[in-house]
Amino acid sequence: WLKDDEATHCRQCEKEFSISRRKHHCRNCGHIFCNTCSSNELALPSYPKPVRVCDSCHTL
C-alpha cells in the first residue's frame, strides 16, 4: 500500500496530482492513480462490496 505523500503523479497516465486531480488507491494493487485511471469497481474477496480498482487490475 503506497502512502499518499509518496505519490506526486498518477502511476498510469503520469499526470501530476493537484487539488482538482485527486489521489485514489487501487484496492487491489495498492498503487495510487487519478480518478480517470481508477474509475472501475471490482468485487474482491477481502471487501464486502465492490471497491475502486485501477484500469490494469480491472482488466486482469
Rank of each mutant, 00 (worst) to 15 (best):
W1E: 09
K3Q: 02
K3E: 03
K3T: 08
K3M: 04
D4A: 03
D4W: 02
D4E: 08
D4L: 05
D4N: 11
D4C: 00
D5R: 03
D5E: 09
D5N: 12
D5M: 13
D5L: 03
E6R: 05
E6K: 14
E6Q: 07
A7P: 09
A7T: 12
A7C: 10
A7I: 12
T8P: 08
T8W: 09
T8K: 11
T8V: 06
H9S: 09
H9W: 03
H9A: 14
H9L: 06
H9Y: 05
C10D: 01
C10P: 01
R11D: 13
Q12V: 07
C13K: 00
C13D: 00
C13G: 02
C13W: 01
E14Q: 09
E14H: 09
K15E: 12
K15W: 03
K15C: 07
K15N: 10
K15I: 09
E16M: 05
E16L: 05
E16N: 11
E16H: 10
E16C: 06
F17I: 04
F17R: 02
S18P: 04
S18K: 10
S18W: 05
S18H: 04
I19D: 11
S20C: 04
S20Y: 07
S20P: 10
S20T: 13
R21T: 14
R21A: 11
R22N: 06
K23I: 07
K23R: 10
H24Q: 06
H24C: 09
H24K: 07
H24F: 05
H24T: 08
H25E: 11
H25W: 14
H25N: 05
H25F: 11
C26R: 01
C26S: 02
C26N: 04
R27Q: 14
N28G: 09
N28H: 13
N28I: 06
C29N: 00
G30S: 03
G30T: 01
H31I: 09
I32P: 14
I32F: 13
I32K: 14
F33P: 00
F33K: 02
C34N: 01
C34L: 01
N35W: 13
N35I: 13
N35E: 15
N35L: 15
T36K: 15
T36A: 15
T36R: 15
C37K: 02
C37I: 01
C37R: 03
C37E: 02
S38C: 11
S38W: 06
S38V: 12
S38Q: 04
S39C: 00
S39P: 06
N40K: 13
N40I: 07
E41L: 08
L42D: 14
L42W: 11
A43S: 08
A43R: 11
A43L: 13
A43E: 12
L44F: 07
L44V: 07
L44R: 03
P45I: 08
P45A: 06
P45K: 13
S46D: 15
S46Y: 07
P48S: 07
P48D: 11
P48A: 08
P48G: 10
K49V: 09
K49R: 12
K49A: 05
K49E: 10
P50L: 10
V51T: 14
V51N: 02
V51K: 02
C54I: 00
C54R: 06
D55E: 15
D55Y: 05
S56H: 15
S56Q: 15
S56E: 15
C57I: 00
C57Y: 01
H58E: 10
T59M: 12
L60D: 15
L60P: 04
